[in-house]
């Protein structure tokens, strides 16, 4: 019984967060702010669904942990794809306000024309 409640709660939380992420994707009208909702909420939502799956496997007797792999992979890759999309936004100028300029004469990496010639990008 207690397992049922835990699984149901994890499922509902995951579903709600997934829905909130996609709702934010549709609702927010500024391109850069739009990145926030899906990268965070959807990732946690799917994480919670995977937690429900682990609990379900344990309640039915045969323990299963390989959902942790999917979870860890999603949590490691979500920031990287968000970072890439933010760079592409700045590069194409589709941001509501330009990023601030720095006092020390440095520029941001994706606006730096010399750096774009170099093949390796260690910042990603």
């Amino acid at each position: 019984m207690i397992w049922d409640i835990l699984i149901a709660v994890a499922l509902v939380i995951g579903a709600v967060f997934t829905l909130v992420g996609s709702y934010g994707l549709v609702k927010i009208d500024r391109p850069m702010s739009r990145l926030h909702a899906p990268t965070k909420a959807s990732t946690l939502g799917v994480g919670s669904l995977l937690l429900a799956s682990i609990l379900d496997a344990y309640s039915s007797g045969d323990g299963s942990l390989h959902e942790i792999l999917v979870m860890a992979f999603l949590f490691v890759t979500a920031p990287i794809s968000a970072h890439f999309m933010a760079k592409a936004h700045i590069h194409r100028g589709t941001v509501a306000a330009a990023p601030p300029t720095l006092e020390s004469g440095e520029t941001w990496a994706c606006l730096d024309k010399d750096r774009e010639e170099q093949p390796a990008d260690t910042s990603a």
């Binding site: 702010s33 970072h83 933010a86 990023p99 720095l102 941001w108 990496a109 750096r115």
Partner: peptide, 23 residues
């Protein structure tokens, strides 16, 4: 990127600053 309302967007060319967007 994973924590409250902030997404890291870029580093400066010398690696001395991090550009963060706040929701």
């Amino acid at each position: 990127t994973l924590t409250p309302g902030t997404v890291s967007a870029d580093v400066s060319s010398e690696g001395a600053y991090l550009l963060v967007h706040c929701l």
